[in-house]
Write a protein that binds this DNA or RNA. Sequence first.
DNA 1: CTTCTTTCATATCTGCCGTGTATGATCGGC
DNA 2: GCCGATCATACACGGCAGATATGAAAGAAG
Lengths: 316, 316
Amino acid sequence: MELRHLRYFVAVAEERNFTRAAKRLGIKQPPLSLQIRQLEKEMGTALFRRETRGVELTGAGKLLLEEARLILRQVDRAKTSVRRRARGETGRINIGSAGGTYFHPLIPAIIREYGKRYPDVVISPEASNTSLLVARLRAGKIDIAFIRPPFEDSEGVATVQLVDEDALMVLPAGHALAGSVSAPLSAFARETFILFPRALHPGSYDLIIAACHRAGFDPVIGQEAPQIVSTVPLVAAGLGVALVPRSICGIHADGVFCLSIEGDMPRAEICLAYRRDDRSEAVKNFVAMARRLTAAAQPQRDEITRKVASAGAARH
Amino acid sequence: MELRHLRYFVAVAEERNFTRAAKRLGIKQPPLSLQIRQLEKEMGTALFRRETRGVELTGAGKLLLEEARLILRQVDRAKTSVRRRARGETGRINIGSAGGTYFHPLIPAIIREYGKRYPDVVISPEASNTSLLVARLRAGKIDIAFIRPPFEDSEGVATVQLVDEDALMVLPAGHALAGSVSAPLSAFARETFILFPRALHPGSYDLIIAACHRAGFDPVIGQEAPQIVSTVPLVAAGLGVALVPRSICGIHADGVFCLSIEGDMPRAEICLAYRRDDRSEAVKNFVAMARRLTAAAQPQRDEITRKVASAGAARH
DNA sequence: CTTCTTTCATATCTGCCGTGTATGATCGGC
DNA sequence: GCCGATCATACACGGCAGATATGAAAGAAG
């Protein structure tokens, strides 16, 4: 049996007339009769009672009509489903965010816009740290990761830089330098530095230490924060100072003051990462959307930077 | 798209190898590749990633694999459903029984045996009277009717005689003739006769009246019973006597005595009726089953008759 | 590095079968 | 009783499913 037989059968059943059905199908009546006879032979029973004025469905024919309609509908549904899947309009994307990246307004904006454009793609977000997310990305557990470079084991991982912001020094509100516009890093040579575990993100960790060394001191490491974001409350609690990306500093700023650091300081970037060999159209669409929104945000980046800065300054 | 494409696609997806799939399908590899390419063209996307060692499904391919399996399974199910329907192994039969016919053991036996042999045919029974059942049969509301001839409006209705039993006179237990083996109908010339409404079954009604006339009297009609079966309790209540088919008399026999009537008396037949032009295999199977069981019961009919008689006699 | 094997793609041919054309058979209606 | 509608039958044709032969690419084996 072929779908042709079912399509022809449904047409005849609906028209109750071979000639009209043939016209509707764009073929002639004799071949249509032949196809129906073939179907009847395979079914082992007559499907129509041929009468002088058209045809009537037999009991078996009535049953087949229902079934055939179901099948043809299912075939149509399958076709459009597959096409949509191929265009990346359906499916699932597992997205990982390294701690703190989603505090930059661009990240939720990308996810929001993607969800609006592709409402039938299920988005499953998770939060973790850069090292673990890269591992999970490579393992296929997630498809997209918002992470902070640099990171290791980048084999097969493609990245798109989305954000390049500077890092600010977070001070307790009562600190002597609170209220200043900026200071050199060396001004904090005697401060206790609050850092996240090195294993969480060795690249950033080492860059901070190296910057201190360049500024002529070896930082005193105090309390270890479980994640990058949680350094800020520890600073607020008076346990030391911390160097954090501007976007994070701009949000968790109760009881703390943020200060620009003068001179050659490491930047805090945010990258979107995905498997270079990922064939998923949904992922490609997501990356394209991220690129587009990043480009659109580029002209406004300075403005955003200024806004975050003034917001931070306003809270001193 | 044709089912061929889906069948081929599933084979390739399962074998992950065109050559093996082709062998499994009984065709060669090049035409198989062509068919898959056609399918991919219609879907607007690649379904397989051709690699050096066989092929891998793409995301769209994975989705189509699920859908195709569903579709092919549904096609198979539809085929067997239609074939079974054509053999009368599924479907529905609405069966009507005229009051009292199902008290003859053959009728429930037929229904029981049919249900055992065709367990997937839904049997929907209803009880009524012969006139109404014939009308409902002709109207297509029911497909099979167990009725007592004669009946009118038999146009297009075929019948099979199942039972031919005699009628017994039912007397209250204290009646003067209770205990006798038989009596002529004229012995009841002065009795009050309990009858069902003539409209219920004009044929039988008139036969009873005619028999009385032949026996030389005009029967006194007493209480009218709503159905044939309910004449018996009215007799038990002492409201008169009644002439009922032997099988009915054999069952509702508390406080009554049954007596054979001598001479030329109308017989009580039970017929199976169906529409002569009914194309339903289920109905044909039912009629065939009824014929078979009737033929099988024929040699035992005398025995059954004796048993019913002795059972009736035992209760005097 | 070369050769062999495996696997899918390409090119071309063939034969079946789906379709078209012509015609017949049946039956209801005017 | 002829006409028109409808489905069946007979036969011719063309496209396409499938066969055959070969190529291309990439591991595997030596």
